[in-house]
Nucleic acid binder design. Sequence first.
DNA 1: GCTGACTGTAAACATATACTTACACCTGAC
DNA 2: GTCAGGTGTAAGTATATGTTTACAGTCAGC
Lengths: 102, 102
Amino acid sequence: MDAARLAQMLSALGSEPRLRIIASLKTESTHVSELARRLGMSRPLLYQHLNRLEAARLIESGLEQLGESRVRKHYWVAPFRLEITPDHIVHLINQEQERESS
Amino acid sequence: MDAARLAQMLSALGSEPRLRIIASLKTESTHVSELARRLGMSRPLLYQHLNRLEAARLIESGLEQLGESRVRKHYWVAPFRLEITPDHIVHLINQEQERESS
DNA sequence: GCTGACTGTAAACATATACTTACACCTGAC
DNA sequence: GTCAGGTGTAAGTATATGTTTACAGTCAGC
């Protein structure tokens, strides 16, 4: 994990609506329209948040087969665990610099 | 810790320049001008980042006495440890909702 | 073929964040 | 008194994020 990637995950997590999305999906994974209803959020807005969380690999998605050709996009929370301390950050940034100099 | 506070800390941490600031201060705490030089960053920009990190209580500051009336503002990293997992987020959001309903 | 329940995206706008340039001030050393 | 080295902020601009409204499409059931 490099600093850019950590920053991406942290800034994706650093928003109350997105924390609520993760909590809701973790409690019960579901598809977009249902999630929008649960959270009282418009679908387009939810899509944007979902895309950002998925880009940070904090959630994942797949198509759920309903009928023969009817599908629904299902989202769920990826397993993750971040431990953030000043020392971890120092370590990460130092690695970055070694990589640059080599 | 409530969700708003966690989001504040995470979004403050979710930026490469700010991760570099924390790493640099953790390695050796210092005053603003010196830090700006170390990071190759303009002072006003650095102030903005420092203010945000301090608001999130990830760094702290105090005046360093130099001469009789000469002072320099010194910054250092606050001790912190964040452990972020889906379950922790669920727990946090649920607490929030109990608080609202009571 | 119309309706309801979905999936997705485009465009527009408001607000927040990142970043620069420019200013005003203080102090110690020469 | 002027210079170097500090502190801090105001104002402007560019870019990113958050949010809404509006559109276009698919499928199942009546």
